[in-house]
Simulated scan of single mutants.
Amino acid sequence: MTQASISQGKPESFYARVGGEPTFRALVHRFYEGVAEDPLLRPLYPEQDLGPAEERLTLFLIQYWGGPTTYSDERGHPRLRMRHAPFRVDAQARDRWLHHMGEAVKDLKLDPADEAELWQYLERAAHFMVNAE
């Protein structure tokens, strides 16, 4: 816990504990480097430039883990399944997504407990997004 969180009587957020915005920007940037070269996943992103998708995921994860609410302020409720419904997400796409995200998580070199917490969430989210066989 930081001194500020102790003095306010609030537990430190995961977002703050792992380094805040720079950590989440690094995570998502590294993830999209993999997606850009992946022949299965890249076609799922209709925008020529992956930058907007990268920004949306960054803002979502920042908000989810206790940072600023910019994602909801700009886009409303996340509604993740609805937003991904137009895209065919099967087990193979999920596994490729998890592969690239796993590499990105490892690159952060987080404390093992924080890495495990982040990875558990990402695995659950990836399985939740599957919408095709």
Rank of each mutant, 00 (worst) to 15 (best):
M1V: 12
T2L: 12
Q3E: 14
S5P: 11
I6L: 14
E12Y: 08
S13Y: 07
F14I: 01
Y15C: 02
A16N: 14
R17F: 04
V18S: 05
E21A: 15
E21P: 09
P22Y: 07
T23H: 08
F24P: 12
A26C: 06
L27E: 01
V28R: 07
R30W: 00
G34A: 06
G34H: 05
G34I: 09
A36D: 10
L41F: 07
Y45N: 04
L50S: 05
P52T: 01
E55W: 13
L57N: 02
L57Y: 01
L59I: 00
L59A: 04
L61T: 03
Y64H: 12
W65L: 08
G66K: 03
G67P: 05
G67Q: 01
P68E: 03
T69S: 14
T70D: 07
T70E: 09
Y71W: 04
D73P: 00
H77M: 11
L80Q: 10
R83M: 08
P86V: 07
R88N: 12
R88H: 14
V89Y: 02
V89D: 07
V89Q: 02
A91Q: 14
A91V: 13
A91S: 14
A93E: 05
R94W: 05
R94D: 04
R96W: 11
L98F: 06
H99N: 10
M101Q: 09
A104R: 07
V105C: 12
K109S: 15
P112E: 00
P112R: 07
A113R: 15
A113N: 15
A113C: 12
D114H: 12
E115R: 11
A116T: 00
E117R: 15
E117G: 13
L118P: 02
Q120R: 15
Y121H: 15
R124G: 10
R124Q: 14
F128N: 12
M129C: 00
M129T: 02
N131H: 10
A132R: 15
E133V: 00
E133N: 14
